[in-house]
């Protein structure tokens, strides 16, 4: 039986390998992103040579100058892909990580923008990921913009969101028209159920396929070597999803 997290990891892995997207040679993954990390490790274990830098890794941390090094690398264009989420995400792919209501989040205060205002504009592609698919997260317009989905001409920007992966579906983002379109539906979802759970308007072109199941090979890799790599950094996730505990 495939877990929802495994389906999401596989969906993200396929987006990483999308031949139409800019190449992913070096991917950085943050502390709060076990599913994107699983997707990256899966791509690696499938034999694709990507360099994966886990920011929160305790042993063998890839950086010897901390996050400063991550942002300097990104500034130079040496990080190809990053993952971002948000407390609110709108139909133009604007992200709000600061909070709802008046500045600085007098409604519900979120932790803060982290590096999003920089990373979103400086990596050639970003995959947006948010498991909770509800009208309070996917809003018509974010209350505060931590990082803008698109920029006017003349503003230096290397890339945009490639896609938004949620607990219910995958959206593709089109920076030329600043809109999402529905790419695939997770099992049990319909265009109508996605409309009902999404505060922003999006495009539906033709028949929308179901997000594919993981193959036997992908599942075996996730539960074996991918989990081995993730145990130290994401112990809670590995225990919950793969039923594996790190040795004490």
């Amino acid at each position: 039986m495939m877990k929802p997290e495994e389906r999401l990891a596989v969906a993200i892995a396929r987006l990483i390998l999308d031949p139409k997207a800019p190449p992913a040679r070096h991917v950085a993954v943050g502390a709060a992103s076990p599913i994107p990390a699983a997707a990256c490790f899966l791509v690696q274990k499938l034999g694709y040579p990507i360099r994966l830098s886990l920011l929160s890794r305790r042993t063998g941390n890839p950086f010897t100058e901390g996050t400063r090094e991550l942002f300097d690398l990104t500034g130079q264009g040496r990080i190809d892909l990053f993952f971002l989420g948000g407390g609110q995400i709108d139909g133009q792919a604007n992200l709000n990580l600061v909070g709802t209501g008046d500045w600085p989040g007098m409604g519900v205060r979120f932790p803060g923008s982290f590096g999003s205002a920089f990373m979103y504009m400086m990596v050639p592609r970003v995959i947006l990921f948010r498991e909770e698919h509800s009208p309070r997260v996917f809003v018509p317009k974010v209350d505060n913009i931590s990082a803008p989905g698109v920029s006017p001409p003349g503003v230096f920007r290397r890339g945009h969101a490639q896609a938004l992966v949620t607990g219910k579906c995958v959206f593709r983002f089109h920076p030329d028209r600043a809109r999402f379109s529905l790419e695939s539906l997770h099992p049990g979802e319909t265009v109508e159920s996605i409309r009902a759970a999404t505060g922003f308007d999006f495009d539906v072109e033709g028949n929308i396929p179901t997000t594919p199941d993981a193959t036997e090979q992908e599942l075996a890799l996730l539960r074996g070597p991918v989990c081995d790599e993730m145990l130290e950094t994401y112990p809670e996730f590995c225990a919950r999803v793969f039923n594996r505990k790190a040795a004490a």
Binding site: R68, F71, W103, A117, F118, I145, S151, F156
Partner: peptide, 24 residues
């Protein structure tokens, strides 16, 4: 990081890419 790096170098400011269009 950049504001501290400027201090480290003893210069009054440093530029940074990104940020344009952010409410920050």
């Amino acid at each position: 990081h950049t504001m501290l790096q400027a201090s480290e170098k003893g210069v009054p400011f440093m530029p940074l890419r990104g940020l344009l269009g952010s409410d920050i």
